[in-house]
Write a protein that binds this DNA or RNA. Structure first.
Length: 569
RNA sequence: GCGCCCAUAGCUCAGUUGGAUCAGAGCGUCCGGCUUCUACCCGGAUGGUCGCAGGUUCGAGUCCUGCUGGGCGCACCA
């Protein structure tokens, strides 16, 4: 049952509901496929079924009974649909007022609800590599989206800072040492060297396990060294997150749950069995059990995940607890949630794995320029360099200090957008050249549209910030109206993105909005009377108000995706 | 072998949860317009039996079954 997020959608639903005797909430209001048909449409299928009439007949009756309201100008039946035409002046007024006050996104749908979002969650002692970008950007976008809708959001970085892997690194350091000053690159090299060594020397693996055991048993020296590795790693991560504008509400790594391990085992005691020396729980419908403890007696990922899930539930009582983690871990999460349920935690149903697909590096140029190692910050750097080249070519008069400010915003924005523009579950081919291009579907294209709005306001010498004194009857020709109808879609788009934990709809929407804006804007090329900055002051101010509303919407939308919206570029 | 996911135009992808031209957008290619309110903009043309075969339904790109092709995952890593 849809809820209606704008007064016009609600009005259309109510108009049908009133004469059909159903609840407005049960009616879906959508845009007709062609503008000639009308502005909003309500299908009469369910009403017809209940009334045992044909949908077309019901639509005809409802349209005939329709009386115009403040927002709805007319209603016509077309087949099974009732199509409404809106009062353009009233619609413009509502839209522009809402956009200028930053209220086009319905900010109350999440009131009183909490969402936990686990995202990014890299392993320490390794760089944030390029493949981390999807989880990181999708998670961050979801945080922004839920927050804009009024949810209380807890963004969690569940650092991979515990486990046998880290025992291996500790062992490697103790065997080979490393040059000071120690940094994340050196740590990673140590780890790689250790993994390589394990292939020929099986004794190393035992060393690694031993060190993790020492760590878990609280050996002070091992513990101090581990802490140092973690600090070095976090400092590195923070720099990258800063580039992306990301701040986590909680940085609680797996190590934070180490004290909870005995409790977890106690709680699950009656479910645990032994299998090949390991402690496991058998699950219905699963070929393999879920492993909670190795034959060495050390804990595993799943064990710590149980503790983390409990912590999140007990601390936040979330409506939904999302795990933005790559699709390869689907089995793990399915088993984890089954285990929680089996343990009697009915709240396991709020836990959701939000899987995303792989990222592949298409575009040979990208691959060669970055060499074999694909660090996230390197990709950003290359993107920024690419952007600087473009700016130097097409906008050479832009002040150097502005270039310095916007080049990283555009370069990073381009990469982020390219990662958010497709459905998250699909694998994507990342092509840097394409991402950075202003041609076609790209982040910079949207940023550019935003900058153009800002530019018009600059040229006008006036930025409209409220609807006071605006004569909305001056708006309404078709290109303007198409733009307005696109603005009208935003609320539903954002709500759906949240419901489906799927940010790509917002990205796609912004491309459409940019298209509508460009069409409107360039209509003024051929016909000067259609330009924003015309001589007639009331018309000019009304159009400036629309520009301001569109600009605000671009800024809002880009913000939802975690992308900057520069005023010049 | 078992499980999960994917398959739409030459390429990259949308398709509002089963509805009216739903067969779309961008890129590419071809033609035309614009040099402005800053540009890489705008319009048109080209282009697909929605992987294949069945089924459910008044209605299927969308749901079900099978098949083909691809990706990922299947115990002491996370």
């Amino acid at each position: 049952m849809p809820t209606h997020h704008t007064p016009v959608h609600l009005a259309a639903a109510q108009a049908v509901a009133a004469s059909a005797g159903v609840a407005a909430e049960d009616l879906k209001v959508e845009a007709p496929p062609r503008p000639e048909l009308g502005d909003l449409a309500v299908g009469c299928f369910t009403i017809a079924k209940a009334a045992k009439k044909s949908p077309a007949q019901v639509a005809t009756e409802i349209a005939a009974a329709f009386q115009p309201t403040e927002l709805l100008a007319s209603a016509t039946a077309a087949g099974p649909f009732v199509n409404f035409r809106l009062d353009r002046t009233q619609t413009f007024k509502w839209l522009i007022d809402s956009a200028l006050r930053g209220q086009l996104v319905p900010g109350a749908v999440g009131t009183g609800k909490t969402i936990c979002i686990d995202y990014s969650s890299p392993n320490i002692s390794k760089h944030l590599a390029y493949h981390h970008i999807r989880g990181t950007t999708i998670g961050h976008a979801l945080v922004q989206i839920f927050r804009a809708l009024g949810y209380k959001v807890v963004g969690i970085n569940f650092l991979g800072d515990w486990g046998t892997t880290h025992g291996m690194l500790l062992a490697a350091y103790n065997i080979w040492g490393a040059e000071e000053p120690l940094d994340i690159t050196k740590l990673n090299h140590l780890y790689v060297k250790f993994r390589d060594g394990m292939k020929t020397n099986p004794d190393l693996e035992q060393q690694g396990r031993l060190y993790f055991k020492k760590l878990e048993d609280g050996d002070p020296e091992v513990r101090a060294l581990w802490q140092r590795f973690r600090d070095i790693s976090w400092a590195e991560f923070e720099e990258v997150y800063k580039l992306l504008g990301i701040e986590f509400d909680e940085v609680r790594g797996e190590s934070a749950y180490e004290p909870d391990m005995p409790g977890v085992f106690k709680e699950l005691e009656h479910l645990i069995t032994e299998s090949e020396g390991a402690r496991v729980v058998e699950l219905e419908g699963e070929k393999n059990p879920i492993l909670l403890k190795t034959k060495d007696g050390t804990t595993l990922y799943a064990t710590r995940d149980v503790a983390a899930a409990k912590y999140r539930w007990n601390t936040f009582h979330p409506t939904r607890s999302l795990y933005v983690v790559d699709r390869g871990q689907a089995l793990h999460f399915r088993q984890l949630f089954k285990l929680l349920l089996k343990a009697g935690h009915s709240w396991a149903s709020v836990c959701e794995h939000v899987p995303y697909g792989l990222i592949r590096l298409g575009g040979k140029k990208t691959a060669t320029r970055l060499g074999g190692v694909m660090l996230m910050r390197d990709v950003f750097k290359v993107a920024e360099a690419e952007v600087r080249e473009v700016i130097a070519r097409v906008n050479p008069t832009l002040a150097p200090e502005i270039v310095d400010q916007v080049a990283p915003q555009i370069g990073i924005g381009a990469v982020v957008f390219a990662n958010l523009a497709t459905q998250r579950e699909k694998d994507i081919d990342f092509d840097l050249e394409k991402a950075v291009s202003l041609d076609g579907d790209s982040g910079p294209y949207i940023q550019y549209s935003h900058a153009r709005c800002a530019s018009i306001a600059r040229k006008a010498g006036e930025k409209v910030t409220s609807i006071e004194g605006i004569d909305f009857t001056k708006l309404g020709h078709d290109a303007e109206w198409e733009l307005a109808k696109k603005l009208l879609e935003l609320p539903e788009i954002v709500v759906r993105a949240a419901d489906n934990s799927e940010p790509h709809g917002v990205a796609h929407y912004l491309l459409q909005l940019a298209g509508e804006f460009s069409r409107w804007y360039t209509a003024g090329n051929g016909d000067p009377t259609l330009r924003v900055l015309v001589d007639d002051v009331p018309t000019r101010r009304a159009r400036l108000a629309l520009v301001a509303a569109v600009q605000a919407t671009f800024a809002t939308g880009l913000g939802l995706l975690g992308i900057a919206a520069p005023d010049q570029m």
